[in-house]
Each structure stands twice: as C-alpha cells, then as structure tokens.
Nucleic acid binder design. Structure first.
Lengths: 345, 345
DNA sequence: TTGTATGCGTTATCAA
DNA sequence: TTGATAACGCATACAA
C-alpha cells in the first residue's frame, strides 16, 4: 500500500499548471524571474497537488543543500540544548537548516553520524570538542566539508573552533576552592579517554593543586558517565573511600546535582559538611537547594558565534579562525569553607 | 575555494578499483553478491579516496531512505529528550536513522519542518500531539508518508497514535488535590490555543472541579510558554491576583519548578503555605527541594513503542493503530493540605 | 519571460 | 560474479 501512487513531482506540477518544469523551478527559487500571474498559477498547483521538492534531487542538481549538520554527544540533559538552539536560530538567519545527530558519547557512533550527515549533503559540520579519530578529519577534508569545533577552545588544535578553554575555566573555579582552604579534594568526572573537555577540566584541578602546594595525585577521582544518578552513586563511593573529603568538584552540573541530592539524602549539610561544585550553569543549577556553585558557560553566545562562523565558511569560503569565549565562575551556595576550618571562621 | 576538487563519487571508486560502478554499489549494499577479492579491492579504494555515498542520489534511485523524521516543539528543556532518545535507539534496531527538527511551539515553523523532512525523503514522520492545520495532514497524505502522533492519546482523533490521555492523567492528579480539600486552585499552563496536550490538561482540572462541586470558572489560569522563569513570574501574578490560592497546578514540571523557586524566594513554605504540582516527571522534578509532586509519563516506553509502530508502518505497511499508555501520579512533597485546614489536621 | 535539454550520483534491471 | 544502462527529480545553461 505504500506509495500506491507516487508523490507529486515538479513534472506533475508543471503539467497541472500548464508550464514547463523550468518555470516551476524558478517559482520556487527565483520568484522574481516569473510573472505574478504564472506564479500564482504554479503556486495553486503546488498547493492542490501537495507538492514538496525532492531534497535529494535538488541537492544533486544544485550541488548544495543549505544544510548544516551538528553532532552532539547527548540530548538527555540540557547541557547542549541552549547552545544548539541558538546555533539553529542564527543559522536560520542565513537560510540554513540544521540537522542534529546524537553520538551518545560513543566515538564509533559519532563517526557514523558524521558520515551520514555528509552523505546527506551537509554543507558544513559542527562538532563538539577536538578529540576524535584522525581518519574522521581526513574524511572531512576529502569531502571538502567545512567543519567547526565548538564547546572547546584549544590553541594547539589545528581546527577552527569557537568555544572556551575548559582548562582555564575549571582552574578559575578550583582556585576559589583552594582559597577557601580545602585540602581534601575529590572529583567526579565523565570518562576522560574520549572526552577532551572532561580531560581538560580534570587536568585543571591538578594544575591548581600543584600550584597551591597540594599533591596532585591525592585528588580522588571517580569517572562515570554524565547522569544525575551516576553523580549520586559517585558521591557515595567518595565518602566511603575518602571520608575526609571536604569538597567534591564535579565535571558538570548534572553530576553535581546528583551528588548534591545524595549528600542531602545522607543527612549532610551543604556546604557546611561538604562543598560541591558543578560546571556549565544549566537550568538545573538554579533550581537546587542550595543553589549550585558552578562555571557559567556562554551557551547562547557560543551557539550564535558558531553559526556565524560556519555559515561564513560555507558561503564565502571564509578562512578558518579560532574564537575564545570567556567563562565566569558563579559563586552560589554549595561552596563554602571546609569542616576543619569552621571553628576558625 | 569550496569544492576545489569535488568529493569522490561511486565512479571514482570504480575507476580506482578497476571495476564497474555497479560492483561498487553491490559491495556496499549486498556484499554477499561480490567476490571477497574484489570486495577488499573496492573497500581499499573507498577508504583511500574518502568516499561517502551521496544520500540524495541513493534515495532517488532506491526510493527509500531508511530515515524517520521527528518534529518536536523544543529541545530547551528535557521534556522530550528521554522519549526521543528511546525512539532513536529503538529505530536503530530496525536500521533507521532519526532526523530531528524543532518547531519552538510555532505551528508555521512546524509545517515548514515537516515539509523539509518529507522533502529529505523521510520514510515516516513522528509528530507531537494531534492538533495542527488540516492542510499538513493533507500534505502528508498526498506524499504518502506514514505519520505517527505521540505524546497524546485521543480516541476521537483519526490519526494513529501512541501516547497517554493527557486529560485523564491530569484528572487523576487533580483528584488528589481536591481530596486534600483545596478549594482555591490556580493553574499555570502553556498557551492552549495550539497545544492540545496543554488544553487537555487544563480541561481536566475543570472537569474535576465540576465533579467536586467547585465552580470551574473560579480556576485562575495563567497562560505562559514553558520556561522556569515564566513559571516563577506566573506564580508571582497568581499571588497578587488571588492571594487566597492554596494550590497551583502547573502544566508541566518546568513551570512548576519555576513556581517553586518563586514561592521559596518569597518566603513561602511549600507545601504548608502553598502546594505546587507539575507534570511529566522529568529529572528536574527530583532535584528540587521539596521533591515535586507530578504526573509520571512513561517517556522511554512511549519512545520505544512509537519507534516500533512507525517502523512497522513504513516497512510492512502495517495498519495504523492507537496505543494508550498509562501514567501514574507521583505523590512527592510539594502537595499538602491547604493552609485553611492546617488546624483541622 | 518562458521552454528545452543536460547532468548530478546512485540503484536496479537486464545481459553477458 | 560482473558490466552496461535506464531511471530517479531537480536546477541551470542556453535557446527562443
């Protein structure tokens, strides 16, 4: 029963309207080049026939799709939602359509998605973070598809990017932590092997510990995929293994919120008994109690900037550049003095 | 500089491997029909050339894309994320790829996205809710694209759907509310004009009020788009206009969380001074304090079921059916007795 | 302003 | 097992 009669084509519209296919095509792409009269006739035909241009055919003939592909690690939490929304909105201004795919933080799957997007004719590709199999970059080069990396800024990476320096950003937060005299730090992070943002954030904490005369190796680290429940479980583990911990630095807000829930569930007072910090400043961060101390990331600005740069790269072959955006530490209520120094206050 | 040399095609691979294009095509689609020797030769060629099949051309020739399009109202909050993730995962089992588009709750935009997805050759379409311009359904019919409605179940709607009955679901919650003797109800809802789920939830509250001997018209209603801040602002308005309100029923968790934040910010104790309820049971609902009383929606189950049904419709022309899923009221901590009856307890 | 004709990259049919 | 070739639906250079 599927496709009992095929969907209407340009040809059908042309016949119905009594014009040539070229004219119908012009009506859709360069309306100015067509008489108002014939145009309305064609538009009527399109409407009554329920015609929609075949994208594949159009792409093949025109050699461009006005489509940008984006591959993000997940949609499960709101980490990328705001930025992506801004990216899409801005892209629309340039006449582009956005296509999203989700890799679930799995490199293989990401590679697959990238190929799929390119095969679909994406004129440009947006990726999260620099780290991936070089073969993918080679492929992208072979296909001549402009590619922009975001959510990370790294001077040493060869790719154009618009994002923030994850290492610097987390370092700023970690400095606040050590300034408060915390000496027993723990960190909950996403698996760092294939996540350069997570790796940079972890490294940053080590950097600061070094600088403050602490022993980097003393940082107790739990690696676990981003989820509220995982954050909670990780905190549990930390308090079992390192009960002396006074502050838990989390790789993102999702983990932090989970840790916070767990801490309160165990009857701990945050931040009096235990401090917790997040990263990203997503909506979640301002609905918890106490409000989460975290690193604010300029999601919307980043999305907009990425859209502008990528659109330029595609449209005008603009040279690839690197843009660094600033982050700010949001000192809210989950970071305080460590237990030990309570008396000293 | 764009496309200085065009991306490699089937032709290029064929030449490089010293075979015909037909053979290369077979290697990709029906490897069993090709000698192991020639296959490896072709695969080498593909690898070194960085070849990726042109999706448009393939779609045009094969008349199918193994792609399902989904149009959701927003990615800004996690309302649809979990369900969509499950939908995608299940779809993969069937060999389908999912394409997502976002309408931002704007009907015009949604229509545009649907056309775009269909034009891209989507073999099937997933939509949220029944309510939309009949012209869209006509278009979908003309294009012979199987379409499935989800996130809503409505016996009277002509389309196949898999979802829950928003009216029944909210009614169950509202009954709990009235059972607790609340007499001054207010509701914060998304604009109902173009949102049948929101409309059904609002209607449900009225139904229950009628049944309980209250006056439906006494329900104080604030319509505002889903966002935490809007929820907060709405609560502010409610307490100004109807200070006697003892319970605020929110159309979803996002609004409820905003209302909760505002209430606490104003120094109100929830639920002692004011009760608040949500809908959806997204992650947000279990990180607030107090924990949000809400309606649990089977996101994952719904996503999976939708994928199965839509895949069947596309693959086997399976008959369209309607599936109703159950919701459950999650009585957590934000719903309590009204102030007035505190003493009576 | 409109029409004609060609090619885009792939699959599938048919021969070999 | 492989190769030649005809669609597939559209945009565009060129002709009228």
């Amino acid at each position: 029963m599927k496709q009992s009669r095929p969907a209407p084509t340009l040809q059908d519209v042309a016949v119905y309207a009594g014009v040539s296919t070229a004219t119908v095509s012009r009506c859709m792409n360069t309306p100015a080049k067509v008489t108002a009269k014939t145009r309305t006739r064609v538009e009527d035909a399109i409407e009554t026939l329920g015609y929609a241009p075949n994208f594949g055919a159009r792409a093949m003939a025109a050699q461009r799709t006005m489509t940008i592909g984006a591959v993000i690690p997940t949609m499960e939490n709101a980490v990328f939602a705001k930025g992506l929304q801004a990216f899409q909105d801005e892209l629309r201004q340039y006449g582009f359509t956005m296509l999203v795919a989700c890799s679930s933080y799995r490199p293989k799957l990401e590679a697959e998605q990238i190929r799929a997007l390119v095969g679909r004719g994406a004129d440009g590709i947006l990726l999260i973070g620099h780290e991936r199999d070089p073969a993918i970059y080679r492929f992208l080069d072979a296909q001549k598809v402009p590619t922009l990396v975001t959510w990370a800024f790294d001077d040493t990476a060869p790719r154009p990017s618009v994002g923030f320096d994850n290492r610097k950003a987390m370092a700023k937060l970690a400095q606040h932590v050590t300034k408060l005299d915390h000496r027993h730090l723990a960190m909950i992070t996403a698996p760092v092997a294939t996540n350069d943002r997570a790796a940079a954030r972890l490294a940053a904490v080590g950097d600061v510990m070094d600088a403050e005369g602490l022993v980097r190796a003393d940082l107790f680290v739990v690696e676990t995929p981003y989820s509220i429940d995982n954050g909670a479980a990780a905190l549990d583990l930390i308090l079992q293994q390192r009960p002396e911990t006074t502050v838990v630095i989390c790789g993102n807000d999702v983990l932090a919120v989970g840790a916070l829930r767990q801490a309160r569930g165990m009857g701990l007072s945050v931040p009096d008994d235990l401090s917790i910090t997040g990263f990203d400043d997503i909506d979640l961060a301002v609905v918890t109690h106490p409000l989460l101390t975290t690193v604010h990331v300029p999601h919307r600005q980043m999305g907009r900037a990425a859209a502008q740069m990528l659109a330029d790269m595609v449209l005008t072959g603009a040279p690839a550049t690197k843009v660094e955006l600033a982050t700010t530490v949001k000192l809210r209520d989950t970071l305080g003095y460590p237990r030990q120094s309570q008396a000293a206050r």
